Amino acid sequence: MNESFERAVEEVKVLHQRPGYGVLADLYGLYKQATVGDVNIDRPGMFDLAGRGKWDGWHAKKGLSKEEAMIAYIDLVEDLKKEYGFTKTE
């Protein structure tokens, strides 16, 4: 599982198009949930829009196990590869 997750982390970096902010928040949230677990920091202040978006994406995944988050991340990256195309990194 970890090998597939690590491959997905690399593949998302070479998509032919950048996903929208909602998808990026989902990716970030799933990544943090898979690698750290439940959100463990305070929500950034109102002037840190990017930080708040990332925090919200991570907080939305609260309660998922690390394994569930990895599977969801891999599945999302596979969907993005089909939608946007990607450059193989191997």
Rank of each mutant, 00 (worst) to 15 (best):
Y31Q: 09
L30N: 01
V12L: 10
T35V: 02
S4A: 14
Y84E: 04
E68Y: 00
T89R: 12
D48N: 11
K62Q: 15
L49E: 11
K54D: 13
A50L: 13
V77Y: 03
R18T: 14
G51R: 00
R52V: 10
N40C: 15
Y31W: 09
G57D: 10
D38I: 07
L30S: 03
I41S: 05
L80F: 08
I74W: 02
L80W: 01
Y28P: 03
W58H: 13
A60I: 03
A34C: 03
L76R: 08
A34N: 02
S4T: 03
A25V: 06
V77M: 07
G37L: 12
L24T: 04
G57I: 09
Y73A: 03
M1R: 07
G51Y: 02
K32C: 05
G63A: 08
Y84H: 15
R52F: 08
K13Q: 15
V14N: 11
E68K: 10
N2V: 00
L76M: 13
G85A: 10
G45T: 10
I71A: 09
V23K: 07
R43E: 14
P44H: 06
G57V: 07
V39R: 09
W58L: 05
S65K: 11
V14Y: 13
N2K: 09
V36K: 00
D42G: 08
K61H: 01
E3M: 13
K66F: 02
H59I: 07
T87H: 12
L24N: 07
Y31N: 04
V36N: 00
V23M: 05
G20M: 11
P44V: 09
M1N: 11
Y21D: 14
V36I: 13
D56L: 07
V9G: 00
M70A: 11
V9K: 12
S4W: 00
Y28M: 05
V39K: 06
E90V: 13
D48T: 06
D42C: 07
G57H: 05
R18F: 01
A34Y: 04
K82S: 13
Y31T: 00
G29C: 07
V12Q: 15
F5H: 07
G20C: 13
A50V: 15
F86S: 09
S4K: 10
N2I: 06
E10V: 15
E83K: 15
V39S: 03
Y31D: 04
V9D: 06
G22C: 05
S65F: 01
D42W: 04
F47M: 12
M46N: 08
G53K: 06
V77E: 04
G20T: 04
F86A: 13
K88C: 01
K62I: 11
G63Q: 10
K13H: 13
V36S: 00
R43K: 14
K88E: 14
G57R: 04
L15N: 06
Q33G: 00
L49Q: 12
E78G: 11
K32I: 03
L27K: 01
I71V: 09
R7T: 15
T87I: 15
Q33M: 02
T89K: 12
A34F: 02
R7G: 08
T87K: 15
W55C: 03
F86Q: 02
G53S: 03
L15C: 02
S65M: 04
M1W: 09
I74N: 08
M46F: 08
A72G: 06
F86W: 14
G85M: 04
R18E: 04
W55T: 01
L24V: 08
E10T: 11
G51T: 04
Y84V: 08
T87M: 12
V36P: 02
G85N: 06
L24S: 07
K32D: 01
